[in-house]
Amino acid sequence: TTYKLILNGKTLKGETTTEAVDAETAERVFKEYAKKNGVDGEWTYDDATKTFTSTE
C-alpha cells in the first residue's frame, strides 16, 4: 500500500510517499524521515486517503 506524507515544517515543506504493509509501519518511516529533516510537528492521519500530515 502506498502512503503519503505532507510536511508543513517551518524550514521544510513538501511531500513524499512510501510503500508499507500498514499505516503503523508507514508512520514509523515518516516520523524517522521528518526527524532526519529537522521537522518536529503535530501529526494527523487520514485513512481514506492514506495520508499523514506533520505541521509545525
Rank of each mutant, 00 (worst) to 15 (best):
E27C: 15
N37R: 13
T25M: 11
D47F: 08
K36R: 12
Y3I: 04
Y3W: 06
Y33M: 04
K31S: 04
E15G: 07
L5Y: 04
A48H: 10
E19T: 14
T16I: 15
T44D: 08
T49C: 04
A48E: 12
E27H: 12
A20S: 06
K36T: 10
K13E: 05
T49G: 04
R28P: 02
F30M: 02
T25N: 07
E19P: 04
Y45M: 01
T55F: 08
E19A: 08
T51A: 03
T55D: 08
T44S: 13
V21F: 13
D22F: 03
G9P: 02
E56C: 07
K31C: 07
W43E: 01
T18E: 04
K10F: 13
S54F: 15
T44P: 00
T16K: 09
E42V: 14
E27S: 09
D47Y: 08
Y33R: 02
T53F: 10
W43C: 02
F52N: 00
G14L: 15
F30Y: 01
F30N: 01
S54Q: 07
K50M: 07
A26L: 01
G9Q: 04
D40H: 13
A34L: 10
E27R: 09
N8Q: 10
T16E: 05
L5T: 01
D47R: 08
A34G: 02
F30R: 00
Y45E: 01
Y33N: 01
T44H: 11
R28W: 07
T55L: 06
S54W: 15
I6R: 05
D40G: 08
T18G: 02
T1Y: 13
E19D: 10
A23I: 11
Y33G: 01
R28D: 04
D47K: 10
T49L: 07
K50F: 08
N8D: 11
L12K: 10
A23H: 10
V39P: 02
L12R: 09
G41K: 02
E15C: 15
T11N: 14
T2V: 14
T51H: 01
E15S: 12
D46T: 04
G41N: 03
T53L: 06
V39I: 13
K35N: 08
A26M: 01
T53Q: 07
Y3S: 03
K50H: 11
T49W: 03
T17N: 05
W43N: 01
A48Y: 10
E19S: 10
K31H: 08
E27W: 15
T55V: 09
T2N: 08
E15K: 07
D46Q: 04
T53E: 05
V39N: 04
E24S: 11
N37L: 15
A26N: 00
F52C: 00
A26G: 01
K4S: 05
A48K: 12
W43M: 07
V29Q: 08
E24P: 09
A23W: 15
T1F: 13
E15L: 09
E15T: 14
D22G: 04
A34V: 06
E27A: 11
T55S: 09
D40S: 10
Y45H: 00
T2G: 03
E15Q: 10
A34I: 06
T44R: 09
T11S: 12
Y45F: 06
E24F: 10
K36L: 13
G14K: 14
D40P: 05
A48V: 11
E15W: 14
V29Y: 15
T49D: 04
F52L: 00
E24M: 11
G14V: 15
K50D: 02
T17M: 09
D22W: 02
T51E: 03
T49Q: 06
V29R: 10
A48D: 11
K50Q: 09
K31L: 07
K4Q: 05
A20K: 02
A20N: 02
G14R: 14
S54V: 15
D47G: 08
T2M: 13
L5C: 12
E24T: 10
L5G: 02
N37T: 08
D46L: 03
N37C: 15
T1E: 12
L5H: 02
F52M: 01
K4P: 04
K35V: 10
N8F: 11
T53P: 00
E15R: 07
G14I: 15
A48N: 12
S54H: 07
F52W: 06
Y45W: 02
E24C: 13
V39F: 15
G14Q: 13
V21D: 12
E42P: 05
S54L: 15
V39T: 04
D46V: 04
D46R: 02
D40Q: 13
A34K: 01
Y3A: 02
E42W: 11
E42D: 12
G9M: 07
E27T: 03
T49Y: 04
G9K: 03
I6V: 11
T44G: 06
D47E: 14
K10I: 14
G9F: 15
G14C: 15
L7A: 02
T51D: 01
E42S: 11
D40E: 13
K50C: 05
R28C: 07
D40W: 14
K10Y: 09
G41V: 05
K35E: 10
K36D: 10
Y45D: 00
A34M: 07
L5V: 03
L7H: 03
G41Y: 06
L12V: 14
T2L: 14
L5P: 03
E32G: 04
E32Q: 09
E42C: 12
V29H: 11
A48S: 12
T51I: 06
D40V: 13
D22C: 05
E24R: 11
K36E: 12
F30Q: 00
D40Y: 13
L12M: 14
E27F: 15
E32L: 08
D22Q: 02
D40I: 13
T55I: 09
F30E: 00
Y33F: 12
K13A: 09
D46Y: 03
E15A: 08
E19F: 15
S54R: 03
E27K: 10
K50N: 07
A34S: 06
L7M: 10
T17L: 09
E27P: 00
A48G: 09
G41T: 05
K36S: 11
G14S: 14
D47N: 09
T53G: 02
T18D: 02
N8E: 09
T55H: 07
N37H: 15
K13G: 05
L12H: 14
D46I: 04
A34R: 02
K31V: 06
G9S: 09
A26F: 01
K35F: 11
I6S: 03
N37Q: 14
N8T: 08
T11F: 14
T1S: 10
D22I: 02
T55E: 07
T44F: 11
E24H: 10
F30H: 00
T1H: 13
E56F: 08
K50L: 08
L7Q: 01
K35W: 10
F52P: 00
D22E: 03
T49V: 05
D40L: 12
T2R: 12
E56H: 06
T44W: 07
T16M: 15
Y33K: 01
R28N: 07
F52K: 00
K13N: 09
A23M: 13
K10E: 08
V29S: 05
R28K: 12
D40K: 10
E15F: 14
E56M: 07
K4G: 03
F30W: 01
L7K: 00
T2C: 14
A20R: 02
T18W: 10
G14A: 15
E56Q: 07
E42K: 11
K4V: 09
T53R: 07
G41H: 04
F30G: 00
A23Q: 12
K4H: 13
G9V: 04
T49M: 05
F52V: 00
G38F: 06
L5K: 01
A20H: 02
D22H: 03
T2Y: 09
A26P: 00
E32N: 07
E56D: 08
K31M: 08
T51S: 04
T51Y: 01
R28G: 06
V21A: 14
A26W: 01
T25F: 06
K50R: 12
D22A: 03
T53H: 07
G41D: 04
Y33T: 02
D22N: 11
E42L: 13
